Structures are given as structure tokens and as C-alpha cells.
Amino acid sequence: MKRNEVLKAVVILQAVCMIALTGMVMVKVWPLPGLKSGDQENSGTPDIPVQEGSGTNSQAVVASVGGKTITMNELTDELLEQYGDAVLRVMMVRIAIDKEAEASGLTLTPDEIELELARSAEGYGSEEEYFKVMKEQLGMSETQIMDEIKYRLLMEKITVRDYPVTDDEIERYIDEHPEQFGSREQYHLKWIVTSTREQAESVLSMLEDGGDFAELASNYSIDAYSAENGGDLGLIEADDPFYDEAVLNAAAGLAVAEIAGPIELEEGYAVIELAGKKSTSGLTGDQLYQAVRRQLALERARPIRELEDELLTRYGAAIMK
């Protein structure tokens, strides 16, 4: 296995904390580097609503361990200290994006949003499955996901508007990179990873005797990330560079519901099941041209972080101490 599961877990944890933070009562904020304090009326800092209920009580006990309690205030302070600047910046940048889009007459069409959602959901089987996974793993609601898509697309439009791309450049790029735009095959894989070949053969024997794959994965797989999902890896590109080539080659020769193994990995051995296959057709026509235009313009444009700083300055962003 070539994926960095530790990094993925850290990213998920950070995202969960940041999302939780935005819904909490923010009792204080710290200045962001490069921004000056100013009057509340001129600030780009949004008002943060206070939710009703016991959770708004800063001294409300939210957890206890060994008789020692943790209050809402302590939890909020800790989250603010770790993630406050990052979350506040996101909120401020979104306000600046809205203002710049309005001033420049930039809008999004339903087709643009739907196409970007389809790109984001690619590999999850369906948009419904994508929303479900994002909710379970990151705590993101469908509304939050769609907001993220909206602001990402608007920021890209702001970024690339000064970097025109000609039709000739688009056609030349398509001719030189045909592999990027053809149809692709995806495998819906499940696996159980063990430390030794003998353990993998034992798991394989139990599966052949009618054992439940998800249950065996939960009990025996040393890949903790997938084990808690019954060994389910979701949809994977047939040439995904983050998976062992031996696994993908084995999957290519399986029929749906067939099992293969043991397959040697860097950290052990795997038994896999092909739960399904999916073929995706490539972009064509105007969608293809727009996708390439966007890609080439983004490659030429200034870093998005740099443009975000410019927008914050343009709209008088300030942090209240």
C-alpha cells in the first residue's frame, strides 16, 4: 500500500475540528499575520450567531474523565488556539469573494456547479454516497459541501480572469494529452490486509467457507482506516498511483463479487474482493474546452493564496482583538 494513511487521518481530524469550530460561540480571536486591527463597522469579520441551548453556556460541562471536567469554554479556547486563525481566514475570504464577484459581475451557472459536484463525487459511486461519506468522515452537511464548491469556483474565476487562453492553445493541449480525456475504468474494491501470508490464506479460507467479508476485515485487517469500514476502499481508478500495482492488476482480472489473494504488499498481504466496476466517459465538446481552458489559466495565474491576501486588503479586512 502506497497511500499515506497517517496523513489522511490528520487531514480528516483537522477538518472535523475546523468545521466544529465554525458552529461554536467564538469568545475571542487572534490577529492574522499581515492584517491590522480596525473598527468593527469596517471589518470584514462576519457576525457569528450564538445557538440557543446548554451548549451556549461557557461553563457547561461537555465531558469528564476521572472526575475532572472539561467545560465548553475550555473546549472553545483550545479549538480557537489550534484552528481559530485558519477558520476565521476562510470566513473572511468568503466574504471578500462575494464582494469581488458582485463588483465584477461574476456568477455561476447551475451547470457549472453540477459539473464541479460530479468531479468532486467521482470515485464515490454516486452524489448521494459522496454526501454520506463527507458527513460521516468530515461532519460536513450537503449545504456546507455546496458552499465549498461555490466559493472554490468563484475564486477560480477571479483568479483566471486576467489570463486568457486561446482555442488554438486548448486544441494543442488536447492533442498532446489525449490520455487525460478518454474514458476510464474504476474498481469498487474491498480488502483485508494481514501481516503474513499464512494469515491471509487463513482469511481466504474463511471467506471460501462463507465468512462475511466486512466482519473479517473488521476483525483481522491491519489497515485500520479501511477495517472500520468493513475493508471497503470505495471506487478506485484502474491506474491509481496510490495503490499497489499488484492489487490493481488482480482486480482487472476479477468478475464482480470474486475474491483474490494473497497479494503481497509492502507491509503485508492482501485479500481483495471486487464489489463492482464502473466506466466513466471522458469530457467532450464545450465541457472539454472549458475544462482545459480552466486548467491552463490556473497554471498561469498567481497563487490563490496571494490573491486571497489581495482581496482581504481591498475590502478592508481587519481582526478585532
Score class of each variant (00 low, 15 high):
D98F: 02
Y163W: 10
A103W: 05
P49A: 12
A121Q: 11
M155K: 09
D85S: 14
Y130L: 10
P110T: 05
K150T: 15
A63R: 00
T56G: 05
V87M: 08
P49F: 03
M134R: 11
V133Q: 12
N57L: 00
S120I: 03
E74D: 06
M91S: 08
K132R: 13
R119A: 10
P46Q: 06
Q144F: 02
A60G: 03
G66P: 08
I149T: 05
T56K: 06
E148A: 15
T143W: 08
K68Q: 13
Q82T: 13
G139Q: 12
E128T: 12
A101D: 01
R94H: 12
I158A: 08
A121D: 07
Q40M: 12
G139S: 10
L75C: 04
M140L: 15
V165T: 15
L88W: 08
Q82N: 10
P46E: 11
I158G: 06
V50W: 00
Y163L: 00
Y130E: 08
L115N: 13
E129N: 14
D162V: 04
T69S: 14
D47P: 11
Y124D: 07
L138D: 11
E78T: 12
Y124R: 10
N73P: 01
L108S: 07
A103N: 11
K150V: 03
V165M: 14
K99F: 09
I145F: 04
E156H: 14
G105F: 08
T45V: 11
R119N: 11
A60Y: 03
A63F: 00
M155W: 04
L108H: 06
D162Y: 04
P110C: 02
D85G: 09
Y83D: 04
E114C: 03
G55F: 00
R89Q: 14
E116K: 12
L79I: 07
Q40D: 11
Q59G: 04
L75Y: 09
P110A: 08
A101P: 02
G105D: 06
T56W: 00
Y130Q: 07
V65T: 05
T71Y: 02
T56P: 01
S104V: 01
E127T: 12
I113G: 03
R94G: 05
K132N: 14
G53W: 00
Y83H: 13
S37F: 04
S120E: 15
I95N: 11
N42C: 05
A60C: 02
D47S: 13
L153V: 09
I97D: 12
L153F: 09
D85Y: 04
D47Y: 09
S64P: 00
Q40K: 15
G125A: 11
E129F: 06
G139E: 10
L138N: 13
P110N: 07
A121S: 15
F131D: 08
D39M: 07
K150F: 02
A121I: 12
E136L: 15
E78S: 11
A121E: 08
D111N: 06
L108V: 04
Q82F: 11
L75V: 11
T69G: 03
M72G: 00
G66A: 14
A118T: 14
R161S: 13
E148Q: 15
V90N: 15
I70A: 09
L79V: 07
G84R: 09
I145G: 03
K150H: 06
K99L: 15
E41G: 05
I145K: 01
E81P: 01
K135E: 14
L115D: 12
Q137K: 13
D111H: 04
I113L: 13
E114T: 14
D162K: 10
M91N: 02
